[in-house]
Computed example of a mutant assay.
Amino acid sequence: MLKKKGFKGILMLSMVAMLAFAAACGNNTGGNAETENTGTTNNATNAPTEAAKLSGEIKVDGSSTVFPLTEAAAEEFNKEHADVRVPVGVSGTGGGFKQFCAGEIAIADASRPIKDEEATACKDAGIEYTELTVAFDGLSVVVSKDNDFIDHLTVEELNKIFVTGSTVATWKDVRDTFPAEPIVMFSPGADSGTYDYFNEAILDKAGIRNDKAISFSEDDNALVQGVSGSKYGIGYFGFAYFEENQDKLKVVPVDGGAGAITPTTETIKDGSYAPLSRPLFIYVNNKELERPEVKEFVKYYINNIGPLAGEVGYVALPDEQYATEAAKIQ
């Protein structure tokens, strides 16, 4: 009896041990699968979590013309990366490059290419950069909605009005059929890329007059108010600002030698609005581009600015050109 009981006890202990071993194996298998599943789940979860962890500040300054583009890109980017701040200033293209070459900002908005002296300043400061073309613009000559006598102006007439040393005082001095009323001029300031482009394209770099007949401002909205408030006023700025204020402004078709052309999305894109169609740029400090938030913002900018350009009054580049610009970031 004792032997039978001992055998049964041993048998029961063996069965318990086998069951425990099987359970342990089952748990290990389940545990590995669970670990793998958990790992997979964590990896899937980590992708947006890592993206959400982007934070910091990306300082941008420069062209008031490029400002609407960069502001739009920053606002959309911020919806996905709420912890990244992208303040955008409007000190003008020249003002932006001064800060950029001093290492004070990560990105410079520019409505013209960087000048040789600005590039030298950056080089002397040890700042390497990448130039990215983001959209096209048509620099627009505008007058008040109340102006009922201008149907177009030639490049020569614009030169006569704005060039330094000009003695033109009334509209009749520009064209005999115009009224003998004083011309009131409005222009971006000398730090503006728009000023530089107009000076080059219309005035052959002779310079813009600086007398009591003309007012300067880096704020395009101030120029809009000045021109719209004077029947005999005239000014110029980016196409987006005209589109935004076309209820109170009239755009002037410009004859560059092939007939009077009105700036539109089509004429700007195909270059027929000459000589006032121009590319717009951002310049990125390469050292800053090593920061993940800066790199992600710039990638987002180039990959999304095409549709945004149309929304804020500019003309998108061809898709293949955006692909070329995106490749520069890599």
Rank of each mutant, 00 (worst) to 15 (best):
K4Y: 11
F7I: 14
K8T: 04
K8D: 02
L11D: 02
L13Y: 00
S14E: 07
A20T: 12
A33V: 13
E34M: 14
N37T: 10
N37L: 13
G39E: 00
N42C: 05
A47K: 11
S55E: 15
S55D: 08
V66C: 05
E71N: 14
A74F: 09
F77R: 02
F77D: 02
G95T: 04
G96E: 01
G96C: 03
F97L: 07
C101D: 02
A108S: 13
A110Y: 04
R112M: 10
P113N: 07
I114W: 01
C122T: 14
A125R: 06
T133L: 03
T133D: 08
F136Q: 07
G138S: 05
L153W: 14
L153A: 06
V155D: 05
A180G: 01
P182H: 07
V184N: 11
M185Q: 10
P188R: 04
T194M: 00
K205Q: 12
K205T: 13
A206R: 14
G207W: 12
I208E: 04
A213G: 04
F216D: 07
D220S: 14
N221P: 03
A222T: 14
S230R: 10
K231P: 06
Y232N: 12
Y236L: 06
Y236F: 15
D247K: 12
V252P: 03
G256K: 07
P275V: 09
I282D: 00
I282T: 09
Y283L: 15
V284L: 06
N286Q: 10
L289E: 06
P292F: 09
P292I: 10
K295W: 09
P307G: 13
L308H: 03
A316F: 08
L317M: 07
D319V: 12
E325R: 01
I329Q: 00
Q330S: 13
Q330I: 03
